[in-house]
Nucleic acid binder design. Structure first.
Lengths: 197, 197
DNA sequence: GCCAGTATAGAACTTTTGTTCTATACCGCG
DNA sequence: CGCGGTATAGAACAAAAGTTCTATACTGGC
């Protein structure tokens, strides 16, 4: 086992500690983490992690988690198209907004799907768009859902009256679906995103 | 000056330190930060910060930055609507994606605007949508731009041939615009997002 | 102004954390 | 197998970080 590959195997373990505790380990904690008996061994390891950039140090030598490189990609919402623009000074005072925070309420139960068909085109959902889909939510009338009908996956408006379920497209070239057999709603569409360039 | 308001005045200073260094200060650093001479004073302050939740402690008493509440809102792209779903095991192996990272290439030159009109409805941009707009990009033919034409702000497709500029709507109920006087293109639409609920 | 409670100072003390040094074991290469 | 370099152990040492205690100053309410 080469020293480099051993280091590389250890990095994920270290990163998991940092994620779990929100900080770097002490030498004693490194010792426990990697089941070594000597603090000196832990210290040598720490030196390697520092060289590799996965740990940092304070001016006094204390181990710290590396600085987060994440440049925040937060944007300002300036207003509406028709209303035009605030002044640069006014703009600078506006709060910034993360799209993740804006669009994703329940990350654990949300996933994304690519749209390929055009059955919802009149709802402003185009082929190539990406939809956010939330599981575990009972669909209400008018919600857009991802469902498996008679063995096929589809995205449609959901309407239910009594026991009667209709799945309606937003495209006159497609027919309303009334599921005969198994209908499984996988999730409700909670958002749509499109990257243009 | 009540103790509480003094504490509240100090919190932003502490938070700036944490942001700048990516970690909590030691007592000596707190001392310097707030120009107090006694480490004991700094320690008492630290206790207050801990009570207030703006600092934490390790099991050994060390001061740490509070745990980031930001649950990462990263989602998995499972595939396409028509293709259906991977198995749970396969799903767990998929990488996660941040919408901020996906949609925002140049945060410093990108801002958001609300859409209120329906002139781009056939392009899948509905009233209530939010568009991302990038400044400092020369628009290419077919780009959607935010422009000020004859003193009015609008969003349209941009086409240029020679010196002739056309701004085309994506809605048959609106006319093509050929700017007579000043045309100022504020930015190019780089993304569209819609929150559905 | 007086008084109680809090804030601050200063210093000694304790614990934690990392460093230094010596020694042995392990590994890979020729 | 021998050897050099690296990994690991163990323990003493030094510095950093926090705690405890005593004392004084400050603040706000009566």
């Amino acid at each position: 086992m080469s020293p480099r590959s051993r280091l590389h195997e250890r990095i994920p373990v270290l990163n998991a500690f940092i994620r779990q505790h929100g900080r770097a380990p002490t030498l004693d904690e490194l010792r426990a983490l990697f089941q070594v008996r000597s603090k000196n061994t832990a210290s040598v390891m720490a030196g390697r992690f520092v060289e590799a950039g996965v740990l940092g140090r304070t001016a006094t030598g204390r181990l710290v988690a590396p600085r987060q490189q994440a440049s925040p990609r937060r944007l300002r919402l300036l207003g509406s198209v028709a209303a035009g623009f605030p002044s640069p000074a006014e703009e600078a005072l506006l709060d910034t907004l993360s799209l993740d925070e804006y669009l994703v309420s329940n990350p654990e139960s949300t996933f994304m799907l690519r749209v390929e068909g055009d059955s919802m085109i009149e709802a402003g959902i185009l082929p190539g768009d990406t939809v956010l889909v939330e599981r575990g939510r009972a669909p209400r009338n008018g919600d857009i859902v991802i469902a498996c009908v008679d063995g096929e996956w589809t995205m449609k408006y959901f309407y239910k009256q009594g026991r009667d379920v209709r799945l309606e497209p937003a495209n006159a070239r497609y027919a309303t679906i009334r599921p005969r057999q198994r209908l499984a709603v996988e999730g409700v569409v909670s958002g749509v995103v499109r990257k243009l360039g």
